[in-house]
Design a protein around this nucleic acid. Structure first.
Lengths: 335, 335
DNA sequence: CTGTTAGCGCCTTCAA
DNA sequence: TTGAAGGCGCTAACAG
């Protein structure tokens, strides 16, 4: 910056003002400054600016697993919304590990991000508390670890319950649920919805049929095989998430169990290519893009106005009725 | 920091030194400082530190589309390698738009990232030049826009050529290539490999069968339908990338063309779930994780030693011989 | 063994 | 219309 001021023959403060349009500068001088900037190849140092302004225009993201298509899509939307608002995004993948999550959070706070978007891990309440202790605006996505902080998540119950009733209407009596890991609000809510659906359908609940399938394809595959090894197999499986569905499909195909003839399969989370599987996968789609946009809106408004009361957003899911539930193409959705 | 020093009754420099282990501090004093840090809830300001040290321990990523499974996987590896080395990652999605790419680059440079990982867009040579002008260490991934800068990309030719010969060995004479957009080194290299494979197999090259399918599922679907509408359809299709393969599958299934009976389909890029499609997809897998790790290694070594000569890394692909090429499960790979 | 202090590059108030 | 200067929070050279 000093170089520029020397070349242009003006003071550094003038340079600053032409860059930031923060006070009128006569056209000729402005021109000279701009030219000097070009010749010197000067790029403003965002760090110094942030230090001075104590505002970084940066949003920190701490997400469990970017490899998960759901998070990929949400991050995509988040990044788009942030950059549209002039914010940059710092991404950290915490591998669903509370310790890593805490470390990531500390790093983010150290970088003085203006706000935080967090998909809390199973031990995420501590992380949320930590962020709040430092007064960093935060919004939770996907899972809610603290109802005292903003969040935007999917309405996990409604469509899942309907899905279970649908399966029951199709004649299934033994329906299994492959759940995500314990300690996540999503897992809890989806299990509850599953049980509610069973109850509404007048079906008996067999605790052995609600199993934890982890959050990896491989763990879900193993859980599926264990289910298939039982003497009284379920006739339908509800996968608690996208990766679980993939693992279930793998387990099923390895055992050469035909879907939906022998076992029906439905899944929470939709993929862009769920209709390319054979049979086409019946799913409950989350509004990933809207979740991302909405979360960023909430965050930016909270940054602008930290005193706001906590806002809790639940976005509706959508049923994608295809054929893995056992229905013919185009058949109506029976309850 | 001043607060901490007041509470602990020592100077700020001592605080700094206990935090950074940069000079011996007697245990009792150290304890007091640590205690003071805890009570004040102090978090070091990374910005100020970076400003002083002129080093941010931050790596900037400018990627075409995080939604693309290939990039997702690479970014995943990149993030892991970076955080293992104590670096943080700033992610920008440039939507394959050269203008956005330049803007993102400027923002990253303004933030004084220590290094840059770039998947150059079609107009990416300018971006690379810009980074070099500022003396920011950079490594290109996936595509190479400048041979003067480090890069790590897949060996696009070898297995693709073999794949074409495989298709020829299976009796196909009219083989189509659904290519990525023009101006990307990957597209060029894969088309060349396709043509070489045709030549080696002694097959005639019909220019009408090499078409650009864009890089979205939708554009690939349209390109596929156009191909199917021709009077003399190809009997085999080579998809130039993962998303293109998905689009081709959609186009094929909409037209109710059976794979591989009516048309064989093979694809560049593997998915973790490529074996869950019906038929299981024959693909050429890129070593995404290794690409990410290797790129980060190159970058960190260049940060440490900026004078290094350009290093060009080509990682081998792997054939995943499954059934969409028309082979029976477990059949050998014929050439 | 510990403290003082000069910047890192920028913004912004105040004065001219 | 313009410039001088203090200070954001930190590190490290220097002095004590």
């Amino acid at each position: 910056m000093r170089d520029v001021s020397a070349v242009a023959g003006v003071s550094v403060s003038t340079i600053s003002h032409v860059i930031n349009h923060t006070r009128p500068v006569p056209e000729p001088t402005r021109k000279r400054v701009l030219a000097a900037i070009a010749t010197t190849g000067y790029t403003p140092n965002t760090l110094a600016r942030s230090l001075k302004r104590s505002e970084t225009r940066t949003i920190g993201l701490a997400i469990g697993d970017i490899g998960n298509p759901y998070f990929t899509e949400v991050v995509h939307a988040l990044e788009g919304a942030a950059s549209a608002a002039g914010y940059t995004v710092i991404l950290t993948d915490v591998r669903e590990d509370p310790a890593l999550e805490m470390a990531a959070l500390a790093a983010l706070i150290g970088r003085r991000v203006d706000g935080l978007i967090l998909a809390p891990s199973a031990g995420g309440a501590a992380a949320v508390a930590e962020a709040r202790r430092h007064g960093v605006p935060l919004v939770q996505i996907d899972r809610v670890a603290s109802t005292g902080a903003d969040y935007v998540v999917a309405r996990n119950g409604a469509d899942l319950r309907r899905m279970v009733r649908h399966l029951a209407a199709l004649g299934h009596m033994r329906i299994a649920m492959l759940s995500g890991i314990d300690g996540l609000s999503t897992s809890r809510e989806r299990i509850d919805a599953f049980l509610a659906g069973m109850r509404e359908a007048g079906l008996a609940h067999d605790p052995a049929l609600v199993v934890c399938a982890g959050f990896h394809i491989e763990s879900a595959r193993r859980a599926t095989r264990a289910l298939l090894d039982r003497r009284d197999r379920p006739s339908a499986i509800v996968a608690g998430s996208n990766l679980i569905a993939l693992g279930a499909m793998r387990g099923l195909s390895e055992r050469e169990v035909r879907v939906p003839e022998e076992i029906a399969l439905v899944s929470f989370d939709d993929f862009e290519w769920a209709d390319l599987f054979q049979p086409r996968l019946t799913t409950i789609a989350q509004p990933c893009a809207r979740i991302g946009q909405s979360a960023m809106e909430l965050l930016l408004s909270r940054i602008a106005e930290p005193g706001l009361p906590p806002r809790r957003v639940r976005l509706p899911t959508a049923l994608r009725h295809r054929e893995s539930c056992g229905c013919a193409p185009g058949a109506e959705f029976r309850l």
